[in-house]
Every structure is written in structure tokens, then in C-alpha cells.
Design a binder for these strands. Structure first.
Lengths: 256, 256
DNA sequence: CGCCATTTTGAGTAACTTCAAACTATGTGG
DNA sequence: CCACATAGTTTGAAGTTACTCAAAATGGCG
């Protein structure tokens, strides 16, 4: 439950920190990335960042706060298809697809770095390792998306919730946002419901069940994992899909 | 419901045909791709192509038949997360991720082209347009995955089924495999159930409902769309996520 | 304090599952 | 060509999970 000893230091840039789970970048590469991420943009809580149908020409990297991808059906039903946490890229169209097929909005206040197409081209041309790292992020997000399909398709409500909490716990820990086995969770029960494919009422009941079993607690937007063994067990969690155990986890820095 | 007039001719390679929906390649690019796809491999029906935990060093492009991505939970529950149709790439690890986090298996006999890492590197170095096209395929598969999460999370059983049938219809039509408003569908009701996140029994009942409404028929592994208007309506289908309306749909060939 | 969003509770209902069995195709070996 | 085996489809009835609707309680914030 603790940070790994050789883990990233607090104050690191979340994106660099996450990429560090996959590969070690040289000091020069780190600086190049840090430079490209200099342009900041802030969003208030519960505001759109990109909307369905738009053709954005930038990619955001979340630095602080939570956002989510979602789709709203004609009759108002909403499905959240991803939580975007610090270090995540809102990669979606990646300058290749015609238009956004879903929306992205903030759940909490968000600070994001804005990357324009030229930044990305410059970065990827400068370093194949950065190219691989960005590619890795896209593929991991796709893997997470597959797991969400499994989650919603084949697990019952409490398993789903436990699984989501395990995932959030590990993803946030990877970017240094877990403290004392807990993390800030700006999503409301209604947001969780839309991510889990159940109703708000049922979300509330399942949450109470997890609380009653002493598995998690959730107060004042802070989720604390009380018993990660039980949480992992009720979720039947297998974290391989998060691919958090890349080179970066065991190789030392490689200065070329 | 008919093939578009300027659509791809029969006999085309399904991958080239699908890429043609996105962009026009030059004759030289076409030939390069065709050459790289020369190595064929056959699989019998219901056989594994890649298994969870493996680290494959090749990418398959399906030429004939259906395969699927799936995950099996510890207690045997299975979720199919994608159908892989002719023209689709089994891109998964793309030489970046450590190991397969899911399995791929055939549903029918499959013929696939085998691309090794060097082939892909050679192709992408030779032509940025091919790079973009491969990238496009990855992003479209991700978009489809998001829509599956929406489907399983927020639609009821008959809507889900209708939505899946609409998607299959459009994807297969894009590669020229729809004839007389119908297509070969090797998936069993049990496979459909595992893709839709419902039981086999319920799949059967929903299928009967769609049949009874005169929307589709399914006999001898052939699905016929009898009323695409009603099908689209019950699915509340919006096909933008398939991104089948790229440059290729309206630009003419560009020989450079 | 009072407002609004969010969480919580209760009771009745609908959708889907489970289990078990019968039925129907399709292919195989005699 | 039939008998049999097997995989897949269909049916029925009872059980469970999760939904709906409606209202009450709580919490954060100006």
C-alpha cells in the first residue's frame, strides 16, 4: 500500500511520472517534454472540455483534477466511458479522426497542459522513446477501455464498483496521488453510477455494502481503501491490463 | 442499403478496402501494403490466435472469417470485447506493451495476413499516409470499444442487440461483405450473449423479439436486415463513432 | 439561515437470470 | 442412408438483481 521506495518524488509532473512507469527518459527528453507541456489551461468543475462533433486541434494532458469521457443518448441516459486522471492524455482524435465521437468534461477543477499538433510532431521526431511512450499511453487507455467493457458486461454491481475503485487506486498511486491508502475522488455517486452502468440509487446501496464490509470508506470526496485484500478479492481484480510494470519499473535512467 | 456506386470492387483486399474508407493511397502505396500482407496464415474455427499473457511479435490482419477479443474471468464468465472482421488488425500490443491482456480467438475459419515488426516499420517509414491509415485503424477500434462500453452500460438487451447488428452491418458493408441486406454471421447466440453482456437464454428471446417485429432474420448463420429503419431506431444508432466517412469517401485517388 | 446538490431510505416493479429440459440442426461413423 | 452424437437453439417457471418513483435526510456554501 505504500509508495515503492524508488518511486517518483512528489512535485514531479504527473505525465512524466506516469511515463516513468513505462520507460526511463533521459534528462534531455524530460526537459523537452516539460517544455512542450508549459502551456497551461484551467477549467472549472463540471465544464465541457471538448464536445461531440468538434474537431479540436489540440491535445490536453491533465495535470490536476479529474475529467471524464462520456456519451449522452438521445433520451438523456449518460455513460461515462473513462475517467481522465492527472497524467492522462485526452488523445482522442489525435489529428487523424474527423470529429469527436464523444464528449470530455471536467468533474473537478482541472489544470491541463495544451499540446498543439506541432509540439507533438517535434517531440516524436526528436525522440523515438517519447514516441513509444505516447503510443504506450494510447494503448493502455485502449486496454482500460476493454476492461471497462468487461466490467460493465460481466460483473454485478458490487464487483463493478470494487473493480473501479481498485483501478482508480492503482492509477492514482502510479502518479503519486494516493496518501494513507486513500485519494480525493471528485466523482459524485451519480457520476459513479454512469461509469458503472447502474442507477444512482443502486450505487448508493452498493457503496453502503462495501462500507459495511469494512472494504472502503468514502467521506467528503475522499475514498479510503480499508482492506485492499478484500477489495481485490471482491473485484476479482487482475491489474495486468493497466500495464504499470514496464521497463520504467525496473530499469534505471538511460542517458543517451 | 446498396453498395455506394463508387464503392470498392469485389476481389479487393479487405484491409485496403477499409483503409479506402479513410484515405486514398497511391498505386505504389497499395502495392507496398499488398506485398507486406503476402504472408498468409489459416486458423480453424474456434481456435486461439493469441492468448492472454503471451508476447506476440506479429500483427494479424484478418482477410477472411471472424475472430474476437475476449476475456474470461476466474469463475468462467466470458466477455467478448470486440469482433474482428475482415480488414481488421489484431493490433493489440503493437510491440509496445509487455504482454497480451486479453485473448483473441477465431469464431469461424480465418485466413489472416501476418505482419512482423520489420514489415510495419518499413511501411510506415515509406509512407506517412500509410502510417496515418494504420493509426486511424487503431483509433477507430478504440472508438468502437468506447461505444461497446456505452452499449453494455446504458442500453437494455434489445437495444444492445439492435445496436450490435447495426454496427456489424455497416462495418461489413464497408469491406463489401453485405449482400442483399444480409451477411454471414458465424457467431452463435452464446457468442452474441457474451458480447452483449446478457445470458444465452435472454439473447434467444431478444432475437425472437427482433424477428417477430420484422426487423431482422437469422437463419443458417446468415443475418438479414429486413427493416434497417426500425433497426436503427430501436438501437438509437448514431454511426459517427465508426468514422467510415473519411477522406476516402469523397476524395479521388491521389497519385504522388 | 436557507438554498441547492447530493445522499439516503422505502416499497413496488420490471428486466434479466437460473435451472432444467426438450427440441433442432449438423456432422460422423457404421 | 440411417443411427447416433454433439453443438446449438428454444421453451417454461421460479428466483434475483437492479430499476422506478417518491420522499426524506444530509451537507456544503453564500
Amino acid at each position: 500500500m505504500r509508495q515503492p521506495d524508488a518511486g517518483p518524488k512528489p512535485g514531479d509532473h504527473p505525465l512524466l511520472r506516469k511515463i516513468g512507469c513505462f520507460t526511463r527518459l533521459s534528462a534531455a527528453e524530460n526537459e523537452a517534454l516539460r517544455g512542450a507541456l508549459a502551456t497551461r489551461r484551467s477549467f472549472e468543475a463540471r465544464r465541457p472540455m471538448m464536445s461531440e462533433g468538434e474537431r479540436p486541434d489540440t491535445v490536453f494532458a491533465i495535470l490536476e483534477g479529474w475529467a471524464c469521457r462520456y456519451r449522452v443518448l438521445a433520451d438523456g441516459r449518460r455513460q461515462i466511458t473513462a475517467f481522465l486522471l492527472p497524467g492522462d492524455l485526452c488523445d482522442s482524435p489525435m489529428f487523424v479522426l474527423e470529429a469527436m465521437d464523444h464528449s470530455v468534461g471536467t468533474l473537478s477543477p482541472v489544470i491541463a497542459a495544451e499540446l498543439v499538433q506541432d509540439d507533438i510532431l517535434a517531440l516524436t521526431e526528436a525522440s523515438p522513446r517519447i514516441t513509444r511512450a505516447l503510443c504506450w499511453d494510447v494503448l493502455v487507455q485502449a486496454a482500460i477501455q476493454r476492461e471497462w467493457t468487461v466490467n460493465v458486461g460481466r460483473r454485478d454491481a458490487s464487483e463493478r464498483m470494487a473493480h473501479l475503485f481498485m483501478e482508480l487506486f492503482l492509477r492514482l498511486r502510479a502518479v503519486g496521488l494516493v496518501e494513507d491508502d486513500g485519494f480525493e475522488m471528485p466523482a459524485t455517486q451519480s457520476d459513479l453510477a454512469d461509469a458503472l452502468g447502474i442507477t444512482t440509487v443502486h450505487t448508493n446501496r452498493m457503496l453502503q455494502a462495501l462500507r459495511a464490509s469494512g472494504i472502503v470508506s468514502l467521506e467528503r470526496k475522499r475514498l479510503v481503501v480499508r482492506d485492499i485484500g478484500k477489495l481485490r478479492h471482491t473485484a476479482m481484480f487482475d491489474g495486468r491490463y493497466l500495464h504499470l510494470d514496464g521497463e520504467g519499473a525496473h530499469l534505471s535512467a538511460n542517458e543517451d
